[in-house]
């Protein structure tokens, strides 16, 4: 078949271009504007070059926040992914309990971020919170507003509580797509439970797992609301993650130049990781076929 080109087709893309420009490109360019210039009000701008980038990238404050951010994402991923798989494996495959379990799993996902934060902020208080009071009653010293470890544990448990369901639901969908014949074949071949998991269930789940890892990485890397509500970044700056730090810099101190530069670096890091994940995913797809 002969294909002919008609450049007028580009006009069909125009509405999308306009919407994306209005909602994404122009706001982003404003940030770029601030990142490379200095301003003292009155809409007067002075060229600053890469000064803000140098300042941000060399600052201990940024390194600290970045380190805490990676540590946080790493910890919650290494808890939520195995735990999610384990729960998905334990869930019933058919029967009356399936909808019950699914609804139970979906509940935490339906609660708004700031409400989750508030729930845990109160839950963990020693004076009126069930968790805090219970721990206190047992004689365990726990105070997330003053103790760094307690603050981290609280945030991690909260994130696990909030988001493990997502991993569970994705894995469960992956498991449900495995035909019964595979399990039957595994039994005939005398495969152990572990071998069945390793050679049937895990390979069939690997794509949903990559999506789960990607989503949980991006979300946890951008986490803001819950730690802001629970710890406000404290004690000190022990739980000041990148986005909390960024908001403090931009809105608290009004350092628009460094904040804009930091935004761009932050954006590029997420973009880089998403690209790596995408490449790995499509590589695995190719390897499989």
């Amino acid at each position: 078949m002969n294909k002919w080109s008609d450049n007028r087709a580009w006009w069909l893309v125009l509405p999308v271009v306009l919407i994306v420009a209005f909602s994404a490109v122009i706001p982003l360019m404003t940030v770029v504007n601030y990142a490379f210039q200095d301003t003292f009000g009155n809409n007067e701008f002075y060229w600053a070059g890469i000064e803000w980038f140098q300042e941000v990238l060399r600052s201990d404050r940024f390194h600290g926040a970045l380190g805490r951010q990676f540590l946080f994402s790493f910890i919650i991923l290494s808890i939520e992914i195995p735990l999610g798989i384990a729960i998905a494996l334990a869930m019933p495959k058919k029967g009356l309990w399936v909808p019950f379990c699914l609804i139970l799993m979906a509940l935490p996902l339906l609660i708004p971020w700031n409400v989750v934060g508030t729930i845990w902020q109160i839950f963990g208080r020693i004076d009126i919170g069930l968790l805090g009071a219970a721990l206190d009653g047992l004689g365990i010293e726990y105070n997330y507003t003053q103790n760094t470890i307690d603050a981290w544990v609280t945030l991690i448990v909260m994130d696990v509580w909030h988001w493990t369901s997502l991993v569970v639901l994705l894995c469960y969908a992956g498991l449900q797509s495995i035909p019964d014949a595979y399990y039957q074949a595994a039994r005939i071949d005398g495969a152990s439970k572990w071998a069945t998991f390793r050679f049937i269930q895990l390979p069939k789940m690997n794509r949903v797992l990559l999506i789960a890892v990607l989503l949980r990485f991006m979300d946890s890397f951008m986490i803001y609301t819950e730690p802001f509500v629970v710890t406000g970044g404290g004690p000190g700056n022990a739980t000041t993650f990148l986005s909390i730090d960024l908001v403090q810099m931009a809105i608290g101190q009004f350092d628009l130049g460094p904040a804009a530069a930091m935004s761009l670096v932050y954006f590029l890091i997420i973009l880089l990781f998403s690209w790596v994940f995408f490449t790995v995913m499509s590589y695995l797809d190719r390897a499989e076929s």
Binding site: P179, A181, Q184, A185, I188, F199, P203
Partner: peptide
């Protein structure tokens, strides 16, 4: 031993 309607192989 059993051979099923749709091929069952261990993909990996």
């Amino acid at each position: 031993a059993q051979v099923f309607q749709f091929p069952v192989v261990y993909d990996t």
